[in-house]
């Protein structure tokens, strides 16, 4: 379950890597909207908007409710599980950084601030 959650978070973040999708996501953060509303505001066709919304929905970032004949999309409240996923990732990263530091043999004074980047990703 945990693995599933983590990979889902990765998918969600990956989905936001697309600039148009991120714009749609941000638009929905402002207010819920239907496909036609979004297509009217963005330089993207309705089918393209629908496709982006489908991806965002699949990874759990947005949800839709039917209002009359329209599907209105809004952000999916992430709930506490989202926070857990985020912190899980954060602490894993932080402890890995801590391990790299603590295993360096040079001692350091408490006040010392090292500006060296800690294990930047390639």
């Amino acid at each position: 379950m945990k693995t599933y959650s983590l990979s889902r978070t990765g998918e969600a973040l990956g989905a936001l890597g697309d600039p148009t999708r991120r714009t749609i996501f941000e638009q929905l953060a402002e207010e819920p909207a239907a496909v036609v509303d979004l297509a009217a505001r963005l330089p993207v066709s309705r089918p393209a908007v629908s496709q982006h919304l489908k991806v965002l929905k699949e990874v759990g970032l947005v949800r839709d409710v039917q209002v009359g004949t329209r599907h209105v999309y809004s952000l999916d409240p992430v709930g506490i599980e989202g926070m857990r996923e985020y912190l899980d990732r954060f602490w894993s990263r932080a402890l890995a950084s801590f391990k790299a530091r603590v295993e360096q043999h040079l001692e350091s004074t408490p006040e010392q601030r090292t500006e060296q980047p800690l294990q930047e990703e390639p």
Binding site: A94, S97, R101, Q112, R113
Partner: peptide
């Protein structure tokens, strides 16, 4: 005490 040395920047 040396938290600054490893906290993700």
């Amino acid at each position: 005490e040396d938290i600054a040395s490893w906290w993700p920047s």
